[in-house]
Amino acid sequence: MGHWLDRNIIEPGKLPLLLALTAFVLTFLVTRSITRLIRAGKGPFRNVRAGGLHIHHAVPGVVLTVIGGFGAVASGRDGLGEAVFAVIFGIGAGLVLDEFALILHLHDVYWTEAGRQSVEVVVLTAALVGLLLAGFAPFGVNDLSADELEDRGAVIVSVATNFLFSLVALSKGKLRMALYGVVVPLIALVGAVRLARPGSPWARRLYRRRPRARARALLRAYRHDRRWSGPSRAMQNWIAGAPDRSAGDR
């Protein structure tokens, strides 16, 4: 583990990226835990208000992101400064993207169905940064052996292929499979080869003159939603909390 860390993270200069990702994920988890406690009326935490205005945590998140970003640029290759600003940036990004849905809708939708978009964006962001750390950007390592070059080339080809599968799944109206397929290749492959969902770009273009394919797609979508909607919602509720019927202050 130590050799891998030195060879693939420290030597190519990706330690700040690892620190930023760790801070990002931990900030999201801690923030979600705190907001759920506030919502339940438990613990010492309360909403922050100034003059009757609810200050969302995306506000300090933006400030920390700006400080971390500009600080990292100003620090150059200073090891300690670069690491500190990377952590600050990760914390700020975690706070901002936890309320991504609010920024997208310009409305407090944190505890609504629309608010689940924040969780999906956080998962996708963490997955993409994780791919960079795992070898998608395999530059900066000196004196690579033939085996290491082959391994890194295989990683790049695998990720590129998986990305294409994810794009096909996305065109078939399978947003979650496309997002999670970035991390788990099998998910993207399954989403790419199975029937498109009704109303998706793929279905509108390719099923337009194929009534049997349209009927099969409708039937499959109905059966899939009936079977998996319950477990899927339960998992989402476990991660992000159950949504309300209407948006409101946390």
Rank of each mutant, 00 (worst) to 15 (best):
M1G: 09
D6M: 10
D6N: 09
I9Q: 12
E11D: 11
P16Y: 09
F24V: 04
L26W: 05
T27A: 10
V30I: 15
V30E: 11
R32L: 04
I34C: 04
R36C: 01
L37N: 03
A40S: 12
K42T: 14
K42Y: 06
K42A: 14
P44Q: 12
V48H: 05
G51D: 05
H54I: 04
I55T: 10
V63C: 07
V66C: 09
I67F: 10
G68P: 02
G68Q: 07
F70H: 09
A72P: 00
R77G: 06
D78M: 03
G79P: 01
L80P: 00
G81S: 03
V84P: 03
V87T: 00
F89R: 13
G90Q: 06
G92H: 05
A93K: 01
L106F: 04
D108L: 02
V109Q: 05
E113S: 04
A114Q: 12
G115I: 01
Q117F: 04
S118W: 00
S118G: 10
V121H: 03
L124R: 03
L128N: 02
V129H: 06
G130A: 08
L133Y: 09
L133F: 04
A134M: 11
A134C: 07
F136N: 07
P138G: 03
G140I: 10
G140D: 08
V141T: 15
D147S: 08
L149P: 00
R152P: 01
A154W: 02
V157Y: 09
S158M: 11
V159W: 04
T161Q: 04
T161E: 09
N162Q: 14
L164F: 13
F165K: 02
S166W: 03
A169P: 08
L170N: 03
S171F: 05
K172L: 06
K172C: 07
K172T: 06
G173M: 08
R176E: 10
R176H: 13
M177W: 06
G181V: 05
G181C: 08
V182R: 01
V182C: 05
V184R: 04
L186H: 03
R194I: 11
L195H: 06
R197H: 12
R197Q: 14
R204C: 13
R205F: 13
Y207T: 07
R209H: 14
R210L: 14
R210Q: 15
P211A: 10
A215L: 14
A215H: 02
R216W: 14
L218F: 09
R220S: 14
Y222F: 13
Y222P: 00
H224M: 10
S232K: 01
S232D: 09
Q236V: 11
N237W: 11
W238D: 00
A240E: 12
G241A: 06
R245G: 15
R245W: 07
A247T: 03
A247G: 14
A247P: 02
